[in-house]
Structures are given as C-alpha cells and as structure tokens.
C-alpha cells in the first residue's frame, strides 16, 4: 500500500506517495523526474546514484525512499548556481577531463563535494581512497583525481 512521503529535495519541499519497496533512486528519477542521478549497477557498488542525505553522501539505490522520510536531499541538479552556472566541482571535471561517457559523473561529483567538505585540501591518496565507492570505466581515474584536486581548490 502506498505511503505518504515528504522530504526536502534541492531546497524545495516535496510530498508524494510511494510503495514501501520503492528505492530512493527510483523515487528521485521516476516520481520527481530528476534523472541526473543515475542507476549504474543497482547493487550499491558503482556509486553513480550517489546523493546527499542530510549532507552526507549515500547510495540512493541501496536505501528505501521511506528511509528518507523528512530528510533533506541534494541531487546533482541541486548543486548548480541560481543562474544555472556549474558548481566549481562540475567545472573542474569539465576542465580536467574528469569524464568521458559521463555516466558515473553525477555520483563522482556528489562524492567529491562530500569529500572536500571533510578534507578541504585533499592529497591524491585521500582522493583515491575516498572515491573508493565510485566506479568509472572510461577515464582510468587520473582525470578525475586531477579534477577533484582542482575542484577542491576552487571550492576553498
């Protein structure tokens, strides 16, 4: 039976109904139509579905929408400036070849922003360790690491 669900997504209050078994990522994509959050593996390994739940990066394919009842959520659509300009981390990914096909990018960027929040001046080693939960099959990660280093500086 559908259950009423309320949360704040990208600064706006959202109310909808969802089946208890609805995953948060499906709720975000199918009901809120925010398709920037991707489903890569659907097994909590690739991190393409990473969003911020009350400020912390989590995998939205590995939790129920109902677990986010009353929570504050930020998706990749919620990080751009009011004028639609790219977030410094997004700009850094573009400038440093942090993506090729782009499928993993929303998750990479959301993880990277969470990482910089905790490590304002991350070393290469820290970046590689912290991005452990985000897989990219195109870039070989070098461009991503450079992008996060540059993004961290730009965010500082």
């Amino acid at each position: 039976m559908p259950v009423k669900l309320s949360m704040t997504v990208n600064g706006k209050p959202v109310s909808a109904e969802a089946e208890p078994r609805t995953l948060l990522v499906d709720f975000i994509r199918d009901q809120l139509r925010l398709t920037g959050t991707h489903i890569g593996c659907d097994t909590a390994q690739c991190g393409a579905c990473t969003i911020h739940l009350n400020g912390n990066a989590v995998k939205s394919c590995n939790m129920l929408a109902l677990q986010a009842q009353g929570a504050t959520i930020t998706t990749i659509e919620g990080i751009t400036g009011p004028d639609g300009s790219l977030h410094p981390m997004q700009a850094a990914f573009r400038d440093h070849h942090g993506l090729q096909c782009g499928y993993c990018t929303p998750g990479m960027v959301m993880s990277a922003i969470d990482l910089v929040k905790r490590h304002p001046h991350p070393s290469e080693q820290t970046i590689r360790a912290e991005l452990d939960g985000n897989l990219c099959r195109c870039t070989g990660y070098h461009g991503i690491v450079k992008a996060v280093e540059a993004g961290a500086k730009a965010m500082g």
């Binding site: 991190g47 990473t50 739940l53 912390n56 990066a57 995998k59 590995n62 452990d132 939960g133």
Partner: peptide, 9 residues
Amino acid sequence: IGDRMVRNM
C-alpha cells in the same frame, strides 16, 4: 568498512 557512502548508512 566498505566505502564512504556505505559508512554513512
């Protein structure tokens, strides 16, 4: 344990 996102949940 796991990765950052897993540790947050």
